[in-house]
C-alpha cells in the first residue's frame, strides 16, 4: 500500500486536473479593443508627412521599411524607391509577418491617397503591430510636394522658402540632377524603383532554440 503522502498528492493533482475540464477555453488571440482603436484613430500620430519620409529616405535610414499596399499592377507602374509591395488583401499572409514581428523597424504604408494605407494600418493595428505609420496624402501628396513643388510667393515667410528649398533638394535626390520633373520621364524612375520583396535576414521569433531533452 503506498504511503498516505502519495495518495494525498495524487488526489490533489487529479482534482486540479478535473477542475481544468470546466475552465472555459481561453482565447489568447491578440486584438485591439474597439475603444482603443477609436482612440488611436482620433490622433494624427499614425501619419508621417511627405517631408519626414523624404528625410528618412535621403538619410537611408536602415530601419525604414516602405510598404506599398496597392495592387501589384500599380506597384510595378510606379512606386517609391526601395518600397516593397504587400497588397491590402495579402496583409494577413504568413509570408509577410516577418516584417511585422520586428518592433525596431519603422514601417510606412502608402497608397495613392492615404485611404487604402489606412485600411491596411487598421488591420495591422488590430493585431497590435504598433510600429506602422501612414504616408499622409499618399503618393498624390508625394507627387505634389516633391515632384511638382512650386516656389512660394515672394511675400511668404522664411519657413516657406526653407521648405521649398528642402523639397527642391529632395526632388533632385529622387528625380535626378536636373531637378525638373517630367511626367514623360517617369518610365526612368519606374525602371529603377520596383523591387521584388527582398528577403531580409530575419531571425524569426518562433524558431527559437529548440527544446532539449533531459
Amino acid at each position: 500500500m503506498p504511503s498516505r503522502n502519495y495518495i494525498i498528492s495524487a488526489a490533489i493533482i487529479l482534482l486540479l486536473a478535473a477542475g481544468l475540464i470546466f475552465l472555459p477555453e481561453k482565447n489568447n488571440k491578440k486584438e485591439l479593443a474597439p475603444e482603443e482603436l477609436l482612440q488611436e484613430l482620433q490622433n494624427d500620430k499614425r501619419f508621417v508627412s511627405v517631408d519626414q519620409l523624404a528625410v528618412l529616405m535621403i538619410e537611408e535610414d536602415p530601419t525604414l521599411v516602405l510598404v506599398d499596399v496597392r495592387d501589384p499592377g500599380s506597384f510595378v507602374e510606379y512606386s517609391l524607391p526601395g518600397a516593397i509591395n504587400i497588397p491590402v488583401e495579402n496583409m494577413l499572409e504568413e509570408d509577410y509577418q516577418q516584417y511585422f514581428d520586428r518592433a525596431e523597424l519603422q514601417i510606412v504604408f502608402y497608397s495613392n491617397s492615404h485611404i487604402l494605407a489606412e485600411q491596411a494600418w487598421m488591420i495591422k493595428k488590430r493585431q497590435e503591430v504598433n510600429n506602422i505609420r501612414i504616408l499622409k496624402g499618399g503618393l498624390n501628396q508625394w507627387t505634389k510636394d516633391i515632384l511638382l513643388a512650386e516656389a512660394p510667393p515672394e511675400t511668404a515667410p522664411k519657413e516657406a522658402f526653407d521648405r521649398y528649398n528642402f523639397l527642391m533638394g529632395a526632388r533632385k535626390y529622387f528625380v535626378g540632377a536636373s531637378g525638373a520633373f517630367d511626367p514623360a520621364a517617369q518610365g526612368d524612375i519606374v525602371e529603377t524603383a520596383p523591387k521584388k520583396v527582398p528577403k531580409i535576414p530575419v531571425k524569426v521569433k518562433k524558431e527559437k532554440e529548440l527544446e532539449g531533452c533531459f
Binding site: 493533482i13 486536473a17 478535473a18 481544468l20 475540464i21 470546466f22
Partner: peptide
C-alpha cells in the same frame, strides 16, 4: 477535444 479534458486524461494516465 478540449485542452482541459486532455490534461485530465493525461494526469489520469500518469497516475
Amino acid at each position: 477535444i478540449s485542452t482541459g479534458l486532455f490534461a485530465f486524461g493525461f494526469v489520469a494516465i500518469a497516475l
